[in-house]
Design a protein around this nucleic acid. Structure first.
Lengths: 225, 225
DNA sequence: AGTTTTTTCAAACAAGCGTTTTAAATGTTC
DNA sequence: GAACATTTAAAACGCTTGTTTGAAAAAACT
């Protein structure tokens, strides 16, 4: 039942790859419920049964696709945090640096996948709006630990601030980030063409500033050390 | 086919009401695709055919429900803007007041509907993530004009700022608002119980501050008059 | 070579979807 | 009470969904 490659590790990985890529495209366009096995098969030029053969179920297919997309972003986040820390071993990170490390990697991945730029933004954002149970599991698996890391970094800057206060604004910052990613496709329409959807770098840059400022100035009892 | 009440204006409005209420609950929980006519009928203790009889189609049912929810909020927004203006006819509105008028009405409606507090937040937020075409129509019908009004108000405060700049940050502010509404249900989980989901007023209050600060300090060339 | 494993393919499965259609039941008006 | 419009009720209509099946094709291995 399960595909186990014994020796030659690359017998015909093409189909499996195409299925995942197609899933990513269609998921970001239409969400979980809007994605059908038949549409995936068609988009990937594969047979309907292929997806079930390679992944077992629709859930497993989408989950694998998400894991593949999200994990590199999270690794890059931690990497950026480490880089910033090494560059200034004496002083603690700034709020701006922290949110830069959180948001920048998404921008990098969006820019990397040249075709259909906003699809990854849509994908990440949709991950937080889809109500399905398996997405809930997803969050606990991929986002809960990284959220904890960022909470710790921020509370290092505001050692006297109540934990509740830091959590509140981290929550708002993350929500803003996700909202901005989700709404990005509407940018051009919303601004009557003044801002175009392909200005991903500018969006990311502005978003980092926006969130940092909101966090810094919105924080009550902000007894910064 | 279409229900037209001739004389006695309230023949049996109960079913129609229950259908809309059920639609609101299920829509905010499961989105458009996750909402089925059968689940609506069951939730409303009505027959499967009742919804189609009263509204004609699933689209029309959901659209009517959304209209009923969104229009009072938009009216209240404009009303708040007018009130603030009357209270200070000489000086222009502040950024804080503008975003207060934008966000506060949602909090009021959430608090009003005592049962299932976060459902309206979910509902409004979902309205912006659902990809369905009829929701796109929805936006142009109910949100495009009010977005224009808020752009004008903000550009009154920053008369020298480029339109693009104001649009950019209004977009970010609105995205943050929607993100915060969408993520509200995750607040308790995200903050490990420190912040509870029923603290709607606090969330709204913090959100207004967060967004105002992000807008004010994030704005480049912010030559405030 | 031959054998076995892996992959593809077309077809069918049961279940759920929005909608329509019938009829009966209920309420309203004269 | 009769005639009417309005509302329920149950069943069925096509259609799409995720998944399974069984045989054919391809690839890998000895």
């Amino acid at each position: 039942m399960i595909a186990t490659v014994t020796k030659n590790q690359k017998p015909k990985i093409a189909t499996r790859r195409r299925l995942i890529e197609a899933t990513a495209r269609l998921f970001s366009l239409h969400g979980y419920n809007g994605l059908t096995m038949r549409s995936v098969a068609k988009e990937a030029n594969a047979n309907l049964a292929a997806a079930n053969y390679h992944f077992g179920s629709k859930d497993a297919l989408v989950l694998e696709m998400l894991r593949e997309r999200i994990q590199p972003i999270n690794q890059r986040r931690l990497q950026l945090l480490e880089i910033y820390k090494k560059n200034q071993p004496k002083e603690p990170l700034s709020v701006f640096q922290i949110f830069r490390s959180l948001i920048q990697p998404i921008g990098e991945e969006i820019s990397k996948s040249a075709s259909s730029r906003c699809s990854l933004a849509q994908l990440v954002a949709r991950t937080f709006t889809e109500p399905t149970k398996f997405i809930e599991r997803m969050h606990h698996r991929f986002f809960s630990q990284i959220a904890e890391i960022y909470y710790r970094e921020l509370s290092l800057i505001y050692p006297n601030a109540p934990a509740k206060e830091v959590y509140w604004h981290l929550h708002l910052a993350v929500s803003s980030m996700l909202g901005a990613l989700a709404q990005h496709r509407r940018l051009e329409d919303f601004t009557k063409g003044l801002c175009t959807e392909d200005q991903v770098d500018e969006m990311i840059d502005r978003l980092i500033h926006f969130v940092s400022q909101g966090f810094t100035h919105g924080l009550r009892n902000s007894t910064q050390s």
